[in-house]
Design a protein around this nucleic acid. Structure first.
Lengths: 139, 139
DNA sequence: CGATATCCGACGAAATCACTCGGATATCGA
DNA sequence: TCGATATCCGAGTGATTTCGTCGGATATCG
């Protein structure tokens, strides 16, 4: 995502290119990007000179959204999940007093994740003054 | 630890008792308590009528300490660990811009964990007015 | 002495993580 | 039209971690 942010506005970037830049296996990135696409963070164009690009400018992509796409709902414990759809209450919930702790931890995590955007992690590269979004500053 | 907090001040509690109250295997608790003892949160007395008890009143036991004892250093990522001893810097650290995010997440977690004590999770049981620590309120 | 405990080390099943592999499908440039 | 370049898709794998189990040694109390 940091790589995609760097190339934002310059057309699609292939996974092969990102794999080379980040020294990660291309086949693995392929798997990850499925989730990003389904989350609407990324669009793909198939065929030669295809690849992926962000659907929004990096400053408008909170890291909470990226993490949820890649790692699932934010939940330090299964009984304190972010996602109301998959909310779980364990069989211990009646006597359990620890849940409040996990909820507070979760809220602290989501708050910091909400407070940072992809732009915060993708500093404008020096030597590329043609980047139209390098000057964007989030929050 | 919540169970030990409940019984704080009334002598040692056996793992068999806690296992019954929490519906957890005793042999498993045995394994966990080793770490608590090594962290100095708990002392043991061997033999009949032995067991474990907290070394401090629950209000003076921050949950950060409990979690560190049970789960190791607080680190949402291996490159953002709590423990200066085991600080790791990955081979990607030169180009990696994501580390700051994990550090902020970690700090948010430790802050909330520091702000809660064991007493916050072990509400005084009603019907036990002889509990000398029921009135203690942390933070 | 025997019941009740903690101590200790090793072992095991299941889930998750970080991948790999093989191939089908779409698109572009020549 | 053809071939190179990409994404798409489903299945499988090896290492590690998590949540336990098991067997037995040691200490203490009544």
């Amino acid at each position: 995502m940091v790589q995609l942010a760097h190339h934002y506005g310059s057309g699609p970037v292939s996974l092969a290119g990102i794999a080379a830049e980040e020294d990660l296996p291309r086949a693995y990135l392929e798997q990850l990007v499925v989730n990003l696409r389904e989350a609407g963070l990324v669009v793909s164009t198939r065929g030669a000179h295809g690849g992926y690009e962000l659907t929004r400018t990096p400053a408008l992509i909170p890291m909470s959204e990226v993490l949820r796409a890649l790692e699932g709902p934010i939940a330090p414990m299964f009984c304190a999940t972010d996602d109301p759809e998959h909310a779980m209450t364990c069989d211990r919930s009646s006597r359990c007093t620890v849940n409040v702790l996990w909820v507070r931890v979760r809220d602290a995590i989501t708050a910091t994740l909400d407070s940072m955007s992809l732009a915060d992690l993708a500093p404008p590269r020096i030597g590329t003054p043609d980047d139209p979004h390098g000057a964007l500053i989030s929050q």
